[in-house]
Design a protein around this nucleic acid. Structure first.
Length: 693
DNA sequence: TTCAACAAACTTTTT
DNA sequence: GTTTGTTGAA
């Protein structure tokens, strides 16, 4: 590995790899070999700096990134398998599984996913006799947790009434929710990080131990850290400060998760003496694509000055297709993909909202082109999978009433709402967990057999919960006759659903224990079978596309209201984030980039007229081409109208008739341009189609 | 208790 | 246009 390790890197990458102690910020533009740099650096630490693999931590944001880093590290240097590579959440959860009892967690605590969280919130609302919607309250809750603030701190920012509740009421709900979580030994997503942070802050012993395991820390996608993750990182790095933050403020797209790109913008102030390394050479995209991308992002104010330089020259022009409606847009994408031909896994179609995927899927499917939708309803969110997981969670943690309610009558076993109501009341009166109340409910029920049956089943399962995960699920399927239930309940697609169940069993086989399996499942949105993407077009949201690259990218729905999304128009920060999202999409493309928008689009079944995105206007037409295989290319949208004062003199420009020229003088709307072979021309910006060259 | 028919709410993005 | 929840009959 030795010198070959360094020789395959460019100068900037090499400098970063050679960085040894102290804080460092690697500003890594899209496609600049970021992961490569981190992986090499880790290998270099081990091979040449005498650092033990067990002293290195690399944090990523997604499971996908974690896998990739592990994979690349493997075989590069001896002991690479010992490096702690993990997402923030998985790292925090691991710490809590070992030391959680020190912050009052029960040993068998479970992790609630979003659905569970909503379900519990609904229960709380019902219990308090409120009819408010859980959605807005949940986002408030998440915001508080992601920021690491008490809910009270957020309330002061809110209007007197929010989600139909007064501030005081809202606070009641949030407090009651947290109590309920604690009572059932559950953590929601935000809690995982929050508890881990508290543990590190309050327990010197634990902090010391974890720091030993993390003497050299790498944080990937640093621009996406939220305040809790920031504090977590800072605390861990607090000892020797061997922290390497890697990221790109231009790709920060998670502010709705309370990520704050200020964390990366202020890194050098936060960590005095930090070295900064800039990776600006882009290996991924053609020059045409990069020029477009640079023109997009240069409009943002909140950034670190940086220009991506292409390694690949030239390339196909960026193309824009204007569709009449979303159907035509989908048709265009599918036909263009067919025209370019297989292998189809070199194509990706990116969109702003999940709802846009349906038409695209259909258009591709009807032409026999395979597609995989990344994201959407995740594997572990499918009803049948969630059912089985709920049994498992309840078996490990009988306090978990959300899971209990889910499966109490699934498959149907004659325990209806009336029964649940009675048992719930009993639980309340006696202060018992729901499952305990179930055991004692015989007296109050007219027909206790179904309940007795269920309790017996669960007790059986509880005995199996500490054995292998697969055996647990096998027994569960048998004992509940679950496949028969699927057939009954979903006559149309029970076969698909059964397939999912089998998939779950396969996955469970890999796990050490049921608990480990559940933890993994909770933090993994979905697992993709190896080879599943092969030969298929990838469909995904822009958020899901981060970190990926494809030879050909279609970025659809480049419209006002969609990109930028209408909900983000109110603030400058919101708008800039939308622009970054666009930038992220554009920079996924290696060879060809297609953009498209529809002139009208259905929103909840209503058809609305739409206009091309302002981002297209900002970029200017010189950097893309209107493309229309169906009609004659119409007038070029959006009209390019530089404002008076757009030119000062000296700029190179292009005129459709006169060709390339140089601006000699400019006054308001009027510019004087010297064109090669033509001479001086006086033009009005209002009428002349003058573009920057 | 269960199932079917209807109404309403929904869509920004996710570890 | 789709999914989720509510209502009423068997």
């Amino acid at each position: 590995m030795d010198e070959a390790l360094l020789s395959s890197l460019n100068e900037a990458q090499r400098q970063a790899v050679l960085h040894f102690q102290g804080p460092a910020l690697v500003v890594a533009g899209a496609g600049s070999g970021k992961t490569r740099t981190v992986v090499h650096r880790v290998a270099y630490l081990i091979a040449h700096r005498g650092v033990f693999p067990t002293e290195i931590l690399a944090v990523t944001f997604t499971n996908k990134a974690t896998e990739e880093m592990r994979e690349r590290l493997k075989g590069m240097v001896k002991g690479a398998g010992e490096v702690w590579v993990s997402t923030f959440h998985a790292a925090a959860l691991r710490i809590l599984r070992v030391y959680g009892e020190r912050v009052g967690l029960k040993p068998g605590f479970v992790v609630y996913d979003e659905d569970d969280q909503t379900a519990l919130l609904k229960e709380v609302l019902k219990e308090l006799g409120l009819s408010a919607k859980p959605g807005p309250i949940k986002s408030l809750l998440d915001r508080a947790k992601n920021r690491g603030e008490a809910p009270e701190a957020l309330l002061s920012e809110l209007p007197e009434y929010y989600a139909g509740l007064s501030r005081g009421r809202l606070l009641d709900v949030l407090r009651r929710y947290q109590e309920a979580l604690a009572a059932q030994g559950a953590l929601d997503f935000g809690d995982i990080l929050l508890y881990a942070l508290r543990l590190l802050e309050e327990d010197q012993e634990v902090l010391k131990r974890v720091r030993k395991r993390a003497r050299f820390i790498h944080v990937d996608e640093y621009q996406d850290t939220n305040p809790v993750q920031y504090r977590f990182t800072k605390l861990l790095a607090g000892g020797e400060a061997n922290l390497m933050a890697v990221g790109d403020p231009d790709q920060g797209i998670y502010s709705f998760r309370a990520a704050d790109i200020k964390n990366i913008l202020q890194f050098t102030e936060d960590f005095p003496g930090a070295r900064v390394y800039r990776l600006e050479e882009n290996y991924r995209s053609t020059e045409a694509i990069l020029r477009f991308a640079n023109a997009v992002i240069v409009r943002n104010a909140l950034r670190l000055e940086k220009t991506l330089r292409p390694v690949k020259g030239g390339g196909e022009p960026v193309r824009l297709f204007r569709a009449r409606d979303a159907r035509e847009e989908a048709r265009f994408v599918a036909e263009e993909i067919l025209r370019l031909g297989p292998p189809f896994d070199r194509f990706a179609v990116l969109y702003r909202t999940n709802a846009q995927s349906r038409l695209l899927e259909q258009a591709l499917a009807s032409r026999g082109v395979g597609a995989r939708v990344v994201g959407g309803v995740g594997f572990f969110e499918r009803a049948e999978v969630k059912d089985l997981l709920a049994y498992a969670r309840l078996a490990l943690n009988p306090l978990d009433s959300v899971s209990l309610k889910r499966i109490l009558n699934t498959p149907p076993r004659g325990i209806g709402p009336a029964t649940v109501e009675k048992v719930a009341r009993l639980a309340q009166e006696k202060g018992l967990p729901l499952f305990e109340a179930l055991k004692e409910a015989e007296g109050v029920l007219p027909r206790p057999e179904p309940v007795r049956h269920f309790v017996a089943l669960m007790e059986e399962l509880m005995d199996l919960a500490f054995g292998p995960a697969e055996a647990f699920f096998r027994h569960l399927l048998l004992a509940t006759d679950y496949p028969a239930y699927l057939k009954e309940a979903y006559p149309e697609d029970h076969e698909d659903r059964l397939e999912n169940v089998e998939e779950l069993l396969r996955a469970a086989k890999e796990a050490e224990s049921l608990m480990e399996f559940l933890d993994k499942v909770a933090l993994t949105a979905r697992a993709e079978e190896p080879g599943e993407a092969e030969g298929k077009v990838s469909l995904m949201t822009l958020h899901n596309a981060k970190g990926l690259e494809f030879p050909v990218v279609f970025l659809v729905g480049v419209e006002e209201g969609l990109l930028p999304h209408r909900n983000s128009l109110n603030t400058l920060e919101g708008l800039e984030e939308e622009r970054r999202l666009f930038y992220v999409g554009v920079t996924r493309a290696q060879e060809r980039l297609y953009l498209s928008y529809a002139e009208e689009r259905e929103v909840y079944g209503r058809t609305e007229a739409s206009r091309p995105s302002r981002f297209l206007e900002e970029v200017g037409e010189g950097l893309y081409q209107v493309y229309d295989p169906y009609r004659n290319p119409g007038p070029i949208p959006p009209p390019h109208r530089p404002k008076p004062g757009a030119y000062k003199g000296g700029e190179k420009v292009v005129h459709p008739r006169f060709g390339p020229g140089v601006v000699v003088a400019a006054a308001g709307d009027e510019v004087t341009v010297h064109f090669e072979g033509v001479g001086l021309k006086r033009l009005s910006l209002k009428y002349a189609d003058l573009r920057p060259a």
